Amino acid sequence: MWEKYVLFIDGEAIVIDKPAGLAVHPGSRTRESLEDYLHHFRFGFQRTPLPVHRLDRDTSGCLLLARNPKAHKRFQRAFEDKKVSKTYVAVLDGVPETQAGIIDMPLGKVSSAEEGWRMIHDPRGRPSVSHWKMADVRDGRAVIVFSPETGRTHQIRVHASAGLGIPISGDPVYGAGRGPMLLHALSIRVERDGKPPVEATAPLPPTFVQAGFGDVRL
């Protein structure tokens, strides 16, 4: 049954379609995580594959796993050297005034006892850049394809809510939180020296279908 989550596999990499609602790593409030299931993705190897990057618990889609420690280090360097390209698709609770653009908004982390932690626009924070374009509009909600240059925590979510001024539908932290969060890691491409790239695209998840966006052309 675990094969159905696999989008790409070779001797050093696996890309899985992570379901929404499953955290990549355990935390104080999330006992269950992807780590509980990684042994199912050995597929004949003795080593358990390890995630190279993270997706938010409520974000579905492409997640890269490395099948050995050397590959894990190479893929981490690929992220650092900007040899990884990713796209995300999101449904917003409104429609931007323009069709496309670039959001250049550094982010910093804040925390309070009342609201917990979140990321905010902070001129002294870490550089964060996202390209975006509108793919469709339905019932007053826009479908946006984001192509981030950087990979900051909650980057797409904050760039939507604070950069575009319109939160992602269902976002419990930066939006109204009504319904599931409609954010999906659509594709990933990792360049490799002397080998074909690791490349995968994840189909739109059931939450998009149920919300009426399952047939959007991206």
Score class of each variant (00 low, 15 high):
Y5H: 14
V6G: 13
V6N: 11
V6Y: 12
F8E: 10
I9S: 07
D10W: 12
G11R: 12
I14E: 02
I16D: 06
I16G: 06
I16H: 10
D17N: 15
G21W: 07
A23I: 10
V24P: 01
V24L: 07
H25L: 13
P26K: 05
T30E: 06
E32H: 10
E32M: 11
S33Y: 05
S33D: 06
L34H: 11
L34S: 09
H40F: 15
R42F: 08
F45I: 03
T48H: 06
T48G: 04
P49V: 04
L55I: 13
R57A: 15
D58F: 03
L63G: 00
L64G: 00
L65S: 04
A66M: 04
N68Q: 04
N68M: 02
P69D: 02
A71S: 06
K73A: 14
R74E: 08
R74A: 12
A78D: 12
F79N: 11
K83G: 12
K83A: 06
T87N: 03
V89G: 02
V91E: 00
P96E: 07
P96N: 08
E97A: 14
T98G: 12
A100E: 15
A100P: 10
I103E: 01
D104T: 07
P106N: 07
G108E: 08
V110N: 08
E114D: 13
E114N: 09
G116W: 11
W117H: 14
R118W: 01
R118I: 01
I120M: 02
H121S: 14
R124V: 08
G125A: 08
R126V: 15
R126G: 07
S128C: 15
D136I: 05
D136W: 00
R138W: 13
D139Y: 09
R141W: 08
A142W: 03
A142Y: 03
V145C: 06
E149W: 12
R152S: 05
R152N: 06
V158A: 07
S161E: 09
A162R: 04
G163L: 04
G163S: 10
P167Y: 01
P167I: 01
V173K: 06
A176F: 01
G179M: 10
G179W: 03
G179C: 11
L183N: 13
H184L: 14
L186I: 13
R189K: 11
G194D: 02
G194Y: 02
P197K: 07
V198R: 00
E199S: 15
T201A: 15
T201M: 13
A202W: 14
L204A: 04
P205D: 13
P205T: 12
P206A: 09
V209A: 14
Q210A: 15
G214Q: 12
D215H: 14
D215A: 14
L218H: 02
